[in-house]
Design a binder for these strands. Structure first.
Length: 441
RNA sequence: CGGGAAGUAGCUCAGCCUGGUAGAGCACUACGUUCGGGACGUAGGGGCCGGAGGUUCGAAUCCUCUCUUCCCGACCA
């Protein structure tokens, strides 16, 4: 995309409303604009990041056998009365009344909707197990939204729901998601640590939060240093075999958020204990028949008996991840996107638009990048060099190609890597290979 | 939901105490000089001073109410 055509309103100064670094950078880098407290418009660049994150989530859900659906944002109150949560959920739930005085709500989660579907459509044990997910906007009327998109009222969340015949099956479904989550975060360049968690309003008796470490995290976390050295499962993972040993590799180490941390029960040696701040980017639950029972989600078993489904639910805060990744990856100059979620892989800087050779060279490189399918932002503005460099760093483009008259005398352009800032020179003739390498990503 | 702060140009802010024709920097437009890490000059455009009442000859400024936003705490994907 040409910078002269792209809608990318970057800011030199930080709006007063933003306090935490990811919020400031998201506003300055032109990713989002606030519409109301905790409610944001996603501008083109921010939307690209949001979609890339959602796509990684989607691919890992699909790989683990989940199937995508799309549930409504507006849900009928009667469904929530069925589970008893219409009254229980409190003021966080945004309640709406339509013209017929029918009570509706903007979904904060979707257990009721999906369980209702499954209860109506799945009637035989032969149709199980099933795991259904959707990536949809949710709304929770937080008393105090803050930290930009990390604690918004409206947020994009992947939520999925597993349905099994028995507890063993449900635990297997839980384990699949546990490992799929590790893979999902790893692909975004994040080290997410699973921590035993309270189940909160969702309910249940088995639950893990996935926490990434960042200085600006919302809560204190404590964990065994060994967890930081573990690698997420690779592409060769087979989700159909028993996964318990693999999961246990992660869960047998001590890891707790401050609300669960108990110094007395923590047997980790002091020099082995990591004490840090954490951001919750996912939460998984096994909760048995908590929703299937009241909502009548049953099937007939092979012997004709009625079986109440065993359920779990699993959430990933997709929009929150945009902020979380920035919290984990930035410097004084701006965002440092991991390549897998970067809005553009390459930033091409034309240092002198008025120079015919310079512009012709840029156009040629830009065409090559486009042909190779490399997502490129081409800064073709008639601006001063400093502003272009600063913008590329602010927006966090992983690779920056600088084309200027000085380098062109030797047929060279400068390649800069945003992470680390290393610069090198590449001849124009050798650039084709460099582009091919980027295209392979 | 308790406690605190702030709403003046697109952004950052001054002016308010002590009432008297709306300001600066950045951004934007034009021209000129510059031009490899957020240049400089000149000339411009842009504000119902969050909203509603009140006091006053006169309100951005004083008073009352209200809306919005942010911060700390309690709460949370």
């Amino acid at each position: 995309m040409r910078r002269t055509r792209l809608f990318l309103p970057t800011l030199k100064e930080t709006p007063a409303e933003a306090q935490v670094v990811s919020h400031r950078l998201m506003l300055r880098a032109g990713l989002v604009r606030q519409s109301a407290a905790g409610i944001y418009t996603w501008l083109p660049t921010g939307l690209r990041v949001l979609r890339k994150i959602a796509q990684i989530v989607r691919e890992e859900q699909d790989r683990a056998g989940a199937q995508e659906v799309l549930m409504p944002t507006i849900q009928p109150a009667e469904l929530w009365r069925g589970s008893g949560r219409f009254e229980d959920y409190g003021k966080e739930m945004l309640r709406i009344t339509d013209r017929h005085d029918r009570e509706l709500l903007y979904g904060p989660t979707a257990e009721e909707v999906i369980t209702d579907i499954v209860a109506n459509e799945i009637t035989s044990y032969r149709d199980l197990p099933k795991n259904l997910y959707n990536i949809q906007w949710k709304f929770r009327d937080e008393v105090r939204p803050r930290f930009g998109v990390m604690r918004g009222r409206e947020f994009l969340m992947k939520d999925n729901y597993s349905f099994d015949l028995d507890k063993a099956g449900a635990v297997h479904s839980y384990n699949k998601m546990f490992l799929a989550y590790l893979r999902t975060y790893a692909r975004m360049g994040l080290q997410a640590i699973p921590m035993a968690a309270d189940t909160g309003p969702i309910g249940g008796d088995l639950s893990h939060e996935f926490i990434i470490l960042a200085e600006t995290g919302e809560s204190s976390v404590f964990c065994d240093k060994a967890l930081l050295a573990l690698d997420a499962p690779g592409d060769d993972i087979d989700y159909d075999v028993n996964l318990q040993d693999l999961v246990d590799q992660w869960t047998h180490y001590y890891a707790a958020t401050d609300e669960r941390h108990d110094q007395a029960n923590c047997d980790v040696a002091n020099d082995q204990l990591v004490t840090a701040r954490g951001i919750e980017v996912g939460h998984i639950f096994y909760f048995g028949t908590k929703y299937s029972e009241p909502l009548g989600a049953t099937v007939q078993g092979s012997g004709g008996q009625k079986i109440t489904l065993e359920m779990g639910s699993y959430g990933i805060g997709v929009s929150r991840l945009v902020g979380a990744i920035i919290e984990a990856s930035h410097d004084d100059n701006g965002i440092i996107w991991p390549e897998s979620v970067a809005p553009w892989t390459v930033g091409l800087i034309n240092l002198k638009v008025s120079d015919a050779d310079c512009t012709a060279t840029c156009e040629r490189i830009y065409a090559e990048l486009k042909a190779a399918g490399v997502a490129t932002i081409y800064d073709d503005r008639d601006e001063r060099a400093g502003g272009k460099f600063a913008d590329m760093d602010l927006v966090g483009i992983p690779w920056q190609l600088t084309v200027g008259p000085r380098g062109l005398k030797d047929r060279k352009i400068e390649v800069k890597k945003r992470a680390g800032g290393e610069k090198s020179e590449v001849t124009i003739d050798a650039l084709g290979d460099w582009i091919a390498a980027r295209a392979a990503l």
